[in-house]
């Protein structure tokens, strides 16, 4: 086990202030505080080489967990052991082993060419010249950075910059990679490039990846496992397949048929999402209804042209989970 988190809890004191000038003046001398429980009793463990999607709605405590695991924050309670280290103790020695990407913040030096940032990071992390060259060649190749590496960061597009950000966090060959919203704001092409890279790199270098995201297609494409938190609590921890099996029992059934005026028998055990003269879209819960039976029933009434069955998008499953847990 490479990451073991046990009973992690963290609360923040947040200053409360009402609007208005008098209130603002009052706040100069006296402030009311509310305690926000950011994390309560979070426990999980992660095996080497796993890619874990750490998800939850805004304010769920995702970033707080990442900050604790990367040694920035000290929790109120609980233990965390990563590669034999406690992240918030002996910070300097621990952080050599991890790479962190904060999707919303840059770690590159803004006004100089990307390569200069890489070189400074090499010195900060004390990477040997040989390792650096080897690593850099690979990163340039995999992330397709050849044409942008001599451009100042401020002139890069967001997608180009994110690829450089990811490369920057891997210069020192970390064994664990924390990605906090790595695809935020990226266009479809860049998103796919970033995902593909993370997948290939993790596989080749056997790095453990923990990523937070709001984009469920990231999870679908990358993660083998999901940890879902909300309001600081852990609600689900398991594989994507299990999640689908237990929550994704609904299928979307689209059936095209020869134009007909026959009034379809709507006593089908399903929910009609839309219906025209030549197409009907149904949502079927496979727990209570049988897809083939429904198709059979329909084919006896009209002449079918095409049938497609789709699993429910993971996004919908997650929304269902959020609703179920009221987070």
């Amino acid at each position: 086990m490479v990451i073991r988190v046990n009973g992690l809890a963290k609360s923040f004191k947040v200053a409360k202030r009402s609007s208005g000038l008098t209130e603002a003046l009052k706040a100069l001398f006296y402030r009311k505080h509310t305690i926000v429980q950011a994390l309560q009793d979070i426990s999980f463990s992660i095996e080497p080489g796993e890619i874990v999607g750490y998800i939850g709605p805004n304010g769920a405590g995702k970033s707080t967990t990442i900050k604790v695991m990367s040694g920035i924050l000290v929790p109120d309670q609980g233990t965390c052991e990563i590669m034999g280290f406690t992240p918030w103790k002996n910070r300097a020695n621990y952080v050599k082993n991890i790479g962190v990407v904060f999707g919303q913040r840059s770690q590159l030096w803004w006004d100089v060419p990307v390569i200069d940032s890489f070189e400074l990071l090499k010195d900060i992390y004390k990477v040997s010249y040989h390792d650096y060259q080897e690593n850099l060649t690979m990163l340039i190749d995999l992330l397709n950075l050849k044409d942008i590496i001599h451009t100042p960061v401020r002139q890069l597009s967001l997608g180009q910059r994110m690829r450089c950000e990811i490369a920057a966090s891997l210069i020192h060959n970390p064994k664990i990679l924390f990605l906090d919203e790595p695809t935020i704001g990226l266009d479809a092409v860049s998103k796919i490039a970033v995902r593909k890279f993370i997948q290939d790199y993790a596989k080749e270098k056997k790095v453990t990846v923990v990523l937070t995201t709001h984009d469920m297609s990231d999870i679908e494409a990358l993660a083998t496992r999901i940890i879902l938190i909300g309001k600081g609590q852990l609600f689900y921890d398991g594989s994507v397949t299990t999640l689908r099996e237990s929550y994704g029992s609904q299928k979307i059934l689209t059936i095209d048929y020869q134009k007909s005026n026959v009034e379809l028998d709507t006593s089908l055990q399903s929910l009609i999402l839309s219906k025209t003269e030549e197409r009907i879209i149904l949502r079927v819960d496979t727990k209570t209804a049988n897809v083939s039976k429904i198709i059979g029933q329909l084919s006896s009434q009209v002449e079918l042209i095409d049938v497609s069955i789709e699993a429910e998008p993971i996004e919908d499953i997650i929304i269902k989970l959020y609703k179920e847990y009221q987070i």
Binding site: S70, R91, A92, V95, K96, V100, I124, Y125, K126
Partner: peptide
């Protein structure tokens, strides 16, 4: 204010 201090904390230097 910008949160960039967090970045410094994940680097192995004082």
């Amino acid at each position: 204010a910008s949160g960039d201090f967090d970045r410094l904390l994940v680097r192995p230097r004082s």
